[in-house]
């Protein structure tokens, strides 16, 4: 019998008044997987996360976290979450807030290690009201991790962090994933999705428009980029077989091609030297823009 998925969303539809933010979305995340919900602002990522956490009743569809109703899963301590509109209580110390939540778990993450992991060891005695934006975000991370829960649902978790903070954060997530935790995070940072996730689910207009590894999604747009140095004349490059676009800056020429092999054969036949020649796959960004623009077109 297959294990129940960590996150199981079926036919989820979310409406705010007349606006439908999520359309009949289905998504299953097996245990131990790290999944990025990638989408632009307003794509419906937060609605999916908030509905998955039971923060509102969806117009249609069901959500199961670790096989249970969201509220039951949260009460049982199986889920840790960072919300986009989560916050901390005024007039309280960081250590008090952490203690309040840690006490609810049968087997909480040891305090010293938790504080070190979240990077808040130095502010435990400080008042919440005196924290910087990045520090607040790290305290919220510590709250999400307090019970070392098997499932983490994170909505734009690094939005208030600086570069170092983000790197430390993702190192922590990789470490957790390595120990079998399931991590589902919403992001609009392509580099985060590319670097961290086993699987990228591209959300646009409240629908899943692509779902696979970052590499698979990149390959979906099929094209390659041929790049080389060319100080001389560039006539005729855009007319080569397979080429769908030509560009470049300075000495560099960049050709987008749908048939890299044909393009290269023609190039090599016509040029004695192609210094610093590179053939690369599309970036996740190109794939993302391609995927979301076609989905947009389909909607209209």
């Amino acid at each position: 019998m297959p294990e129940t998925p960590a996150l199981d969303v079926r036919g989820l539809t979310v409406r705010y008044g007349d606006v439908t933010a999520v359309h009949d979305l289905t998504l299953a995340v097996p245990r131990g997987e790290t999944v990025a919900l990638l989408g632009a602002n307003g794509a419906g990522k937060s609605s999916v996360v908030n509905a998955a956490l039971g923060l509102f009743r969806p117009a249609a569809g069901t959500v199961r976290l670790l096989g249970r109703e969201p509220t039951a899963a949260l009460q049982a301590g199986g889920v840790g979450a960072m919300l986009q509109h989560g916050g901390l209580p005024s007039e309280a110390r960081v250590g008090e807030v952490l203690a309040l939540v840690r006490r609810r778990y049968a087997d909480p993450w040891p305090l010293a290690d938790l504080a070190a992991t979240a990077g808040i060891g130095g502010v435990l005695g400080r008042s919440v009201d005196a924290l910087s934006g990045g520090q607040r975000q790290r305290v919220l991370l510590a709250l999400a991790l307090a019970g070392a829960p098997p499932l983490l649902l994170l909505d734009e978790p690094t939005s208030a962090m600086d570069v170092e903070g983000r790197q430390a954060f993702w190192a922590t997530m990789r470490d957790l994933a390595g120990r079998g935790h399931t991590v589902v995070f919403a992001t609009h940072h392509l580099d985060e999705a590319d670097a961290v996730a086993d699987r990228v689910v591209v959300v646009d207009g409240g629908r899943v428009v692509a779902d696979g590894t970052a590499a698979a999604i990149k390959s979906r747009i099929g094209g390659r980029t041929v790049r080389f140095r060319c100080p001389g004349p560039r006539d005729g490059l855009s007319g080569l077989p397979g080429v769908t676009g030509a560009g470049g800056d300075g000495d560099w020429v960049e050709l987008a091609t749908s048939d890299a092999e044909a393009t290269l054969r023609a190039l090599l036949a016509g040029h004695d030297a192609l210094p610093d020649l590179e053939v690369r796959g599309a970036s996740l960004e190109q794939a993302f823009l391609h995927l979301t623009s076609t989905a947009d077109g389909a909607l209209r």
Binding site: L74, Q75, A81, L83, G87, S90, L100, V101, R104
Partner: peptide, 19 residues
């Protein structure tokens, strides 16, 4: 009202602290 506006009550809601 302050605890709701700050997001603290939402945050508590996604912990095992009973609502």
């Amino acid at each position: 009202a302050f605890d709701r506006s700050s997001g603290w009550l939402r945050q508590l809601r996604v912990t095992p602290v009973p609502a």
